[in-house]
């Protein structure tokens, strides 16, 4: 399907992400579905609209001759992927490599090694702590890059964009929903050990609440609630907290990001470590997303 109107493409992208989250649900990957739900349906659509406001609505017409190489590359990669697909193990095959290598340890040891019911959190935050540190660094770097290119929210209050307070129903609804969104974000953050969720999802939901506030009540109001300066500091502080927990493990005689030594009992140490790094992840993600929103919303002012 080809769409020239970029806005329709953004809308369909939102629908696509809803559908793929439904797919993750039916594959029983609840954590991934939660991420897709909060990132794909919430933040991505908003940021794409922000990007759309800085560009035109229609794609430039390009002659088919110039499109041909791109089409050939796409088809070639598609064929290669299909070829690779034939080598994948059957869905649910117990002999698949995914169930062989580290899976037995994660699945059978983690309940008494880490001691939390949600296996995804123990893999993400403890066994694979390095990888998660990398992901948080990527998000932080992306936020810094956008801030460098487009400017971060300025600290002066010399301008003010209009809010949408004059729409009565919208204003009341936003006021009713905001506490729920923030509360739910905190629930996802701290209940991530027991149910689906964790720092990434919680950060995105938290940021979405702030963005709703900014959309409805105007940029000058949200900048008083969440000053860009503090957002910038928090963005780095979350990553710093993560690194600090890792270094504490080293100073107390363990490896980097080894939480066993954080408390007298290893399982207790794991609990403290996971809670702290999830807090760091959530802080960085939420601050980065709010910073991105500032960058997009204020850049259009400067143009």
């Amino acid at each position: 399907m080809q769409l020239n109107k970029l806005f329709s493409a953004v809308m369909l992208f939102g629908m696509y992400s809803l559908l793929s989250a439904a797919l993750f649900v039916s594959l029983d990957a609840v954590d991934v579905a939660l991420t897709e739900a909060s990132v794909g349906a919430g933040i991505a659509t908003i940021l794409m609209l922000g990007a759309l406001s800085l560009t035109t609505n229609r794609q430039r017409q390009i002659s088919w001759k110039r499109r041909l190489p791109a089409a050939l590359v796409t088809v070639a990669i598609g064929v290669l992927l299909l070829y690779g697909l034939s080598d994948l193990p059957v869905f649910g095959d117990p002999a698949a490599p995914a169930f062989k290598h580290v899976y037995p340890r994660y699945a059978f040891e983690s309940p008494h090694e880490i001691g939390i019911p949600n296996m995804v959190t123990s893999v993400l935050a403890s066994y694979r702590g390095y990888d998660t540190l990398g992901e948080v660094t990527v998000i932080f770097t992306a936020a810094v890059a956008v801030a460098t290119l487009m400017g971060h929210g300025s600290d002066t209050r010399s301008f003010s964009g209009e809010g949408m307070e004059h729409h009565l129903i919208l204003r009341i609804n936003a006021k009713l929903l905001l506490p729920m969104i923030l509360l739910f974000a905190l629930y996802v953050q701290f209940h991530g050990d027991y149910g689906p969720g964790g720092g990434f999802q919680a950060g995105v939901i938290f940021a979405a609440g702030f963005i709703l506030y900014g959309l409805v009540f105007g940029m000058s109001t949200i900048r008083e609630v969440a000053p860009p300066k503090i957002i910038r500091i928090l963005c780095a502080a979350g990553l710093g907290l993560y690194l600090l927990v890792g270094l504490c493990g080293m100073l107390l005689g363990g490896n980097f990001l080894d939480y066993n030594v954080l408390a007298h009992h290893p399982v207790h140490g794991q609990h403290i470590g996971i809670m702290l790094i999830e807090l760091g992840v959530g802080t960085t993600v939420a601050a980065s997303m709010i910073g991105l929103f500032y960058a997009y919303a204020e850049h259009e002012h400067r143009q």
């Binding site: 349906a41 659509t45 609209l49 406001s53 964009g161 209009e162 739910f184 997009y296």
Partner: peptide
């Protein structure tokens, strides 16, 4: 999450159409 988030993106779209951008 959907019930809470879906609302926000709808509002973002409406704002985009009223003001041509998110900042208003």
């Amino acid at each position: 999450v959907y019930a809470l988030i879906n609302f926000i993106s709808t509002i973002a779209v409406l704002k985009f159409f009223e003001y041509g951008g998110l900042g208003g």
